[in-house]
Design a protein around this nucleic acid. Structure first.
Lengths: 217, 217
DNA sequence: TAGATTGTTAATCGATTAACAATC
DNA sequence: TAGATTGTTAATCGATTAACAATC
């Protein structure tokens, strides 16, 4: 939620809608349709596409297949992304099996843990010793890493990932991780998500100053 | 990331900084200090506080203890919040043990699952059958729910939670859940977080149009 | 052709910052 | 008192929307 690019998120939502429209047999779509489906103005839809040099047909809208393909390119979904997870605790294992991460273009190669008891190279997705992280990443040219290790090991783990050649990190610790400019860290702070929920329901009960969510009647 | 109130997030960051300053022995803080620590202007810090009727002392800044207490009230951290988790899969169990959720003012009362094999009322945090969710929530006056069930059961689960009296839901399915206006749903879409990371590193490699993260050299 | 939709420029809106009077 | 910081109003900035010429 911090530093997240709102345009990219809209592109992903367009993609979702397009997939649903396609499954209904539709072939073309207008900026107006997409705008309605995700709750923005048609101008913004056109501007988003235009920004990424995706053009439609005056009077004819956009062809769904064509649009999907172009969005996939922009979103990086036309090449395979290799991924490792540091930390084979409950969260790491949960993410490893998370359905949303099973995708043609995402491959989870291994988990890593410092605890020898957890190491198991024979597991369907091997669990390897933490000290082999950097070499593994380098050898397999892994580009994405997920960090679910304890807070005090987070920065060290990130450093190793980056030395190995990882370009993007999804960080599940509440810590602010520092990386070189050429890399990206996105932090998912679950604690903050819960805090935020508590704030919102507290606000609703006490006075009108709490913010409204994405709820509807 | 969607519909999140940026002010509340800043308040939480102020709180974090304040706790750290306090642990260093500091007693007072100026809007300038807090602004630096979270990367906004001092005016915004003062405006945030002023919005919630938190006032300081001209020339004297703010007293850390006083500020922390007031922030806790605004953020709802002065009363106990009862919580249940629907779905005792890997993610549900991981969250149940998540350190960030262990807090004086948060109490996880139970998990619920439709799978009888998983049910275990004797577990430290009991795992109960899904059909008892609504009654349990009502009986214990639970106000917060976390949803980690499969997508197709998400809306039904949310409905039950709300019928039981839950006011805020943290939704881990990619589905848009509909709730009455008096309730709040925040969605943590892990799939989208990974997608977004992929977009960012793809953008960095292909052209200059990808967005930068919160990284630094 | 007439009508409809894109692509883009100008206008609006909201959030953040700068500036400054009040005052300790 | 003189100097420094708050609280708030005006200015700025960026993101979204409205409007419209181009054109299929």
């Amino acid at each position: 939620m911090i530093g997240i690019d709102t345009t990219a998120i809209r592109l992903m939502k367009y993609k979702d809608t397009l997939k649903k429209l396609k499954s209904l047999g539709l072939v073309k779509v207008f900026s107006d349709n997409l705008a309605d489906s995700i709750g923005v103005s048609p101008s913004l839809v056109r501007k988003d596409f235009s920004f990424f040099d995706i053009s439609g047909y005056k009077r004819g809208g956009y062809y769904i297949d064509e649009l999907l393909e172009k969005l996939n390119v922009v979103l990086g979904r036309n090449t395979l992304h290799k991924l490792v997870i540091a930390g084979a605790g409950k969260l790491g294992l949960a993410l490893c099996n998370y359905k949303g991460f099973q995708d043609e273009y995402i491959k989870i190669l291994a988990l890593f843990d410092i605890d020898e008891e957890k190491v198991n190279p024979e597991s369907p997705i091997p669990i390897l010793p933490a000290e082999s992280l950097r070499a593994f990443v380098a050898e397999h040219r892994v580009t994405l890493g997920i960090i679910t290790v304890p807070e005090d090991a987070a920065q060290r783990t990130a450093d190793n990932m980056i030395l190995g050649g990882i370009k993007g990190i999804l960080n599940f610790t509440p810590l602010q991780i520092r990386v070189p400019k050429k890399c990206v860290v996105n932090t998912v702070n679950l604690e903050l998500e819960l805090d935020n929920l508590i704030f919102q329901i507290s606000g609703k009960n006490i006075n009108g100053k709490g913010e409204t969510g994405d709820a509807e009647e």
